[in-house]
Design a protein around this nucleic acid. Structure first.
Lengths: 145, 145
DNA sequence: CTAGGTGCAAAAGGTTTGCGGTTAA
DNA sequence: TTAACCGCAAACCTTTTGCACCTAG
């Protein structure tokens, strides 16, 4: 059993229970999809991939599963474009480099405790998100021509 | 004439023309709404405020105007929540502190050229967005009780 | 056993598009 | 003069909700 399988197996069940959620095959399926390829899919993409292994799964269930995973701290929301939330199973501190041309997302680790400047008086920080927009090497090359 | 009025007057016309857009009363109105109160309104909120001075303006026009302003580099998109794009007329380098409880957004200046770590090979950076989530002083206080 | 989860279908936002009439340059 | 823009309404896409049935604990 490799690391990914372990993480999506019994560990998932425990994390869900701790958060007050039940373990279900659908939640495992959705989590597996996210762990299998760290490409920050949208809910729609998670739905399509999940259907391959579980043809009867519904969109409502996918949203429900994703929300449960987010609330358990196993997955985070990423807002990079207008009108499409993406999901990221990487819970390490990192930022997202997003190619505005092809939509590819690159995870880049941050130095631990990276500071983001002074904060408003009394503001209680929960987490932060850093998104860098631009062109990936491939798209930048194409554009020059 | 104060600084804000100047910025939204002849200057706006020039910036629009430079970007290949026409100056229209609707674009001025929408820009005025954003400059008047820097509270990062959604398109819907911009529409409501614009209607007070210009009752016949339509939602489609508001989106059109906002897009034109974004393309001219006068306004930027901000994605802080699921399903609601906000608009920010502050083009200085800054990050957004967002209260997950009441939705208030605080702008905080960044040190010029603040680094966000190493970047993927060949990635051509256009701009970056830093969003800090948590609770504002007021909401954090309420939650303790 | 039963609270919570699932699938379905309909509704609810938010955003975009098509079109006939209007206007900035 | 005319390409760009406006207002309106319909379409579109993502996300949420209500409900009857099912199932994990």
């Amino acid at each position: 059993m490799n690391a990914v399988e372990k993480k999506s197996g019994r560990d998932l069940s425990e994390r869900l229970n701790t958060g007050g959620f039940r373990f279900t095959p659908q939640r495992q399926q959705v989590y597996d999809v996210l762990l299998h390829r760290h490409d920050h899919p949208t809910a729609e993409e998670v739905f399509i991939r999940s259907k391959r292994a579980m043809p009867d799964i519904s969109m409502a269930t996918v949203y429900n599963c994703l929300d449960a995973l987010v609330q358990c701290g196993l997955v985070r929301l990423v807002q990079l474009e207008r009108g499409a939330t993406r999901y990221c199973p990487n819970m390490e501190e990192h930022c997202h480099y997003y190619c505005d041309a092809c939509g590819t997302v690159f995870d880049v680790a941050l130095a631990a405790g990276a500071a983001v400047g002074p904060r408003p008086r009394g503001f209680q920080v929960d987490h932060y998100e850093i998104a860098v927009h631009g062109l990936c090497a491939e798209c930048a090359g194409k554009r020059k021509k």
